[in-house]
Nucleic acid binder design. Structure first.
Lengths: 151, 151
DNA sequence: GTAAAAACTTCAAGTACTTTAAGTCAACGG
DNA sequence: CCGTTGACTTAAAGTACTTGAAGTTTTTAC
């Protein structure tokens, strides 16, 4: 490795591009304590993101994408600093995410079926095929019944 | 119940599941005038969604999914652009929605993998298995790369 | 039947960003 | 050196839901 360090740093714009989070959201997460205050430029007030910051932020972006709340993200990140001691709680937070994702996947399948039926419905409507329109309307209604067992 | 009539109506919960919009959002859209006030039960105050309401709402859900603002949705619906006469446009919207749902399903699978890896990561951390921790850290990073382009 | 549970209602307050306003700082052309 | 362009800063206001509380109604279970 060359020399002491490759202290590669990123501007907020680069950090936004790499995490997929808007710059405004990065500032927001910092302001509400999801992440610790980021370092600033010597002369300017501009935020300077390190590789370590970027690693953390990529993880935070993933959690945000699973719908984790800001307060849970705050907990999760704080626990991350604690290391192995907090493993149990981390696992619990993650298992809640897994459950939510599974439920979401089930609903998406139903919606895909529903959208498919509706496309056929509008084609039949445009074609003036009243019989088919009635059949598809009933099919859509049947799909509603499938929702109940999902609970 | 005798089969004299098939009312083809939906509760707010069914409407929510089929449109993909939460019940609270359906009420909200009604309150801010994106959709006209929905019919109510004879004896109760409960909303009763007809097939016509559902067709409109599915269209609205498509618009919402593409990030259209509430004020634009209001104007769009008021213009009748989501009426029965606009079957072609409905189909166009629904096909975009089908694509979006497919993309969402893919994304959810990736997120499920990410959460799974993170759970394993914390289990390995708790067990002090440094080799496994390193492997899972790398796996999480690889997966993060897959998520970026989708967003 | 009656009684508990689940689903619905409104309204107010909360959440998670997002945008806007007003200003600072750094780089480039003239 | 000076002006202008553009990225950055904070703070406050705005947007689009979301949740909670308190109270009906409908469904379920005995």
């Amino acid at each position: 490795m060359t020399a002491t360090s490759s202290p590669h740093t990123y501007t907020i714009k680069e950090a936004a591009a790499l995490t997929g989070l808007p710059a405004s959201t990065l500032r927001y997460y910092e302001s509400v304590g999801v992440i610790a205050p980021v370092g600033r430029g010597e002369t300017s007030m501009h935020r300077v993101y390190t590789d370590g910051d970027m690693n953390l932020l990529v993880g935070v972006a993933c959690l945000a994408a699973t719908g984790m709340s800001v307060s849970d993200m705050r907990r999760y990140v704080a626990n991350g600093a604690l290391g192995a001691a907090a493993a149990d709680e981390q696992i619990q937070l993650l298992e809640e995410r897994a459950e939510r994702l599974a439920a979401e996947a089930r609903l998406i399948k139903i919606r895909q079926q529903y959208v498919k039926i509706k496309i056929e419905f509008w084609r039949a409507t445009a074609a003036g095929d009243d019989t088919e329109v009635a059949r598809l309307t009933a099919a859509a209604r049947d799909l509603a019944q499938k929702i109940k067992p999902v609970k």
